[in-house]
Design a protein around this nucleic acid. Structure first.
Length: 336
DNA sequence: TTAGGGTTAG
């Protein structure tokens, strides 16, 4: 395919990123360059976003060089894409460096760096940036900013500040957005204020799987596992994330029957081979005394991580399988 | 024609 000018190429490249085909966007970009067209700001922000989607840090760095070479360093749209790309690829120091070099970052750039810090679990730093953006620079946080800030507040267990931010969201008239409301449910849940989560959840007009998952996570954290299982049974649509939480509740109760039902439902969905859910299954069966079955799942897993190994090893330990335990522990140590 | 947000396991 050949387009007549760089505007047409950019529209196509941007369009394919938007519809979730970043690889094709990058192919188009290569073709465009091969045909001798020069990328403009629109093209570059789109391909950087594509690198972000496919989690290709190396290629993203390459585009960062192109941005510098072509003199787009003061383009806020491109820089916020780059900050986001570095943040999502867990290179927060590059994200921070880029942000620090900006003479006058706008609210979106502040939000991008707050999100990069939150994603890299630098929650206190993210909150410092949020207050600086707001108080010292007079920039107004929006829906996107609050989404990240609530994550940082929840993960650092700051319920008092969480309530203050909740008040700001109400004042700004931003309640009613499903992402912000779900983030509030999650913030209260992670702070151990599950009644706060429930209140926000009850007032929501529109809920999605994130809202449910956040609420159920709150009850799990409180040890109210029966409530989690009850909530799960009332859900009409479930997604991958829910399984991890509900299996944690089943394991907490050593509820083999419920666990098996959830396991069947997970298998019926088909296609998912998720390390988190499968690790939760290993833990569930081991806690219910079925370490042999836990081991069957463990062996079939395509991807294992430290949680999987720990669940299996402690499963053997709990069930008095000393020799299996030592064998598994020895193999796991060769992976670390 | 372009940028940024939320949820699972030991």
């Amino acid at each position: 395919m050949v387009y007549k000018d760089v505007v047409a190429w950019s529209s196509m490249i941007t369009g394919y990123v938007r519809v979730g085909n970043p690889n094709y966007s990058l192919e188009l970009y290569t073709k465009m360059i091969d045909l001798g067209f020069d990328p403009n700001g629109f093209t570059l922000s789109a391909v950087i976003k594509a690198c972000c989607e496919i989690r290709d840090l190396k290629l993203g760095c390459g585009f960062h060089c192109v941005v510098i070479r072509r003199g787009f360093e003061e383009n806020n749209v491109i820089i916020s894409s780059l900050i986001d790309m570095y943040g999502k690829n867990y290179d927060f120091s590059s994200a921070l460096k880029l942000f620090d070099e900006m003479p006058k970052p706008d609210a979106v750039c502040w939000t991008s760096v707050i999100s990069a810090l939150t994603r890299n679990e630098l929650h206190e730093e993210a909150l410092r940036f949020f207050y600086t953006m707001h108080r010292r620079n007079g920039l107004l946080p929006d829906l996107f900013t609050f989404g990240s800030v609530l994550t940082a507040l929840g993960n650092s267990g700051r319920s008092r500040q969480g309530r203050e931010v909740h008040a700001k969201i109400v004042t700004a008239g931003l309640c009613g957005n499903v992402v912000v409301d779900s983030s509030l449910v999650d913030m209260y849940a992670k702070c151990g204020v599950v009644d706060g989560s429930q209140r926000v959840f009850d007032r929501m007009d529109k809920r999605n799987s994130v809202s449910w998952c956040a609420l159920m996570g709150g009850y799990c954290q409180k040890g109210e596992f029966d409530t989690v299982i009850e909530l799960f049974r009332t859900m009409e649509e479930v997604d991958l994330y829910i399984f991890g939480t509900v299996l944690r509740a089943c394991a907490g109760l050593a509820a083999l029957k419920s666990g098996k039902e959830v396991h069947c439902q997970y298998l019926r969905r088909g296609g998912w081979r998720d390390v988190i859910v499968e690790s939760a299954l290993v833990d569930l069966y081991a806690k219910c005394g079925f370490d042999n079955y836990a081991y069957v799942i463990f062996r079939q897993m395509k991807v294992r991580n430290s949680v999987t190994w720990n669940s299996m090893i402690s499963g053997f330990a709990q069930n008095g399988k000393g020799s299996n335990l030592l064998k598994t522990a020895a193999i796991s140590s060769s992976f670390s």
